[in-house]
Design a protein around this nucleic acid. Structure first.
Lengths: 105, 105
DNA sequence: GTAATACGTTAGTGCACACTAACGGATTAT
DNA sequence: ATAATCCGTTAGTGTGCACTAACGTATTAC
């Protein structure tokens, strides 16, 4: 799983990135927000670190993970290059259609 | 793989969505843009259809796949709810830092 | 009509992923 | 000091994914 966007897309990892947006957090602390084990979360974090989206800081027996701004910037770029103007047009039409349908109810 | 964003994130499927942005295409036609088999592409298309991002139209012995505007609209929504304003701030800083670094060369 | 060909899907396989269980390392309590 | 506890990672396992090979079906050539 070398791909940046694909790595970030997995639901648990997506959530991890969002949680880390508000600041660094330990593995155990992050785990509280998930139904899976500390180990699972640790491994998701290691994957995110592999692609450069997060990094860890050791302090005592804790490891505080935080977002890597540069990696997140690259992710943003990937998203933007994926979502072309052509798709915006398509979606604009769909939204219009949907709103029309809603209005017609 | 029920998750919309995760399904769309896989590199080949991402590319398929982009190719389909310019209009409907047959499986064989789409396959020309990939190093993998027609079968592989067909299966990716079936997955995309499962989550409602594309649909197929039969004509002769061809099946023309096209984007589902409403599905793509939902995808757009998922992307937007993932990428919070907080992340924009973080990335803005990173970009600034990078530009500074570039300027310093 | 029938043989040949083209298109897309289903069958089958290897591998990677996501997870729990077991572990090593560090800190705290006594 | 040492036993107990907490934190994060590595070991081991099952499932699901991405892919090629084989197949069914429909069209075209003769």
């Amino acid at each position: 799983m070398a791909d940046l966007l694909e790595t970030a897309a997995e639901p648990n990892r997506r959530r991890l990135l969002q949680l880390l947006a508000s600041g660094e957090r330990s593995v155990t602390d992050l785990t509280r927000n998930f139904p899976v084990s500390r180990s699972a979360i640790s491994q998701h974090l290691l994957l995110l670190a592999d692609v450069g989206l997060v990094q860890a800081r050791k302090e005592g027996r804790n490891r505080f993970y935080s977002l890597n701004a540069w990696g997140m910037s690259r992710l943003r770029g990937s998203l933007e290059s994926f979502w072309t103007a052509e798709l915006d047009l398509l979606v604009a039409d769909a939204t219009t259609l949907h709103q029309t349908a809603q209005g017609e109810l």
